[in-house]
């Protein structure tokens, strides 16, 4: 992939059936495409699920990805997003000794809060654009997070 590689968000609507997720991921690995993140959940009151895949590649590769996804029998629709709202959640675990009010205040600015407090640790949550999540996680480093988990992005076309 020597051509210019760019980040892309692709949403795929698939029939809810056995092994449909493997069909998607096999296609990516078999054809050498990247998956940066992947989320999947059923669409309420339907027989379909929606996948949000963050990938990267040249214009030609992205075009191939959408076409190859379309070819899979259980795939109903493929959206290659241009103008979209994108959100990702992150959960972070901190030692109870860290400054909880500072962290809570910062989480608020990123649509989050403290979601759990225990004897030795507390857990914070944020939900924002993936880029902003990146920034937040950089910033939060100095509070010594013990664990961080990201959900992968979900997206809707504007």
């Amino acid at each position: 992939m020597t051509e210019n590689s760019e980040r892309r968000v692709v949403s795929v609507i698939v029939v809810n059936e056995a092994s449909v997720l493997s069909r998607i991921t096999d296609l990516f690995s078999g054809r050498g495409y990247n998956i940066t993140s992947l989320t999947v959940a059923p669409i309420p009151e339907s027989k379909y699920s929606r996948l949000t895949i963050v990938t990267s590649g040249s214009v030609r590769v992205i075009e191939q990805i959408t076409k190859q996804l379309h070819k899979l029998v259980p795939v109903l629709k493929v959206y290659e997003h241009a103008d979209l709202v994108e959100k990702e959640m992150a959960l972070m675990k901190f030692p109870i000794t860290e400054n909880i009010s500072d962290i809570a205040a910062m989480c608020l600015a990123y649509n989050g809060n403290i979601v759990n407090v225990g004897e030795n640790i507390f857990i914070a949550m944020i939900a924002d654009e993936p880029k902003r999540v990146d920034n937040f996680l950089k910033m939060i480093k100095r509070y010594n997070p013990k664990e961080i988990v990201r959900s992968g992005a979900v997206a809707l076309e504007r």
Partner: peptide, 16 residues
């Protein structure tokens, strides 16, 4: 079998 044939068939089924 369907795991193996997935990448070398147009489509496949495991009938339950």
């Amino acid at each position: 079998a369907v795991g193996i044939s997935r990448s070398c068939t147009k489509h496949n089924y495991l009938v339950t």
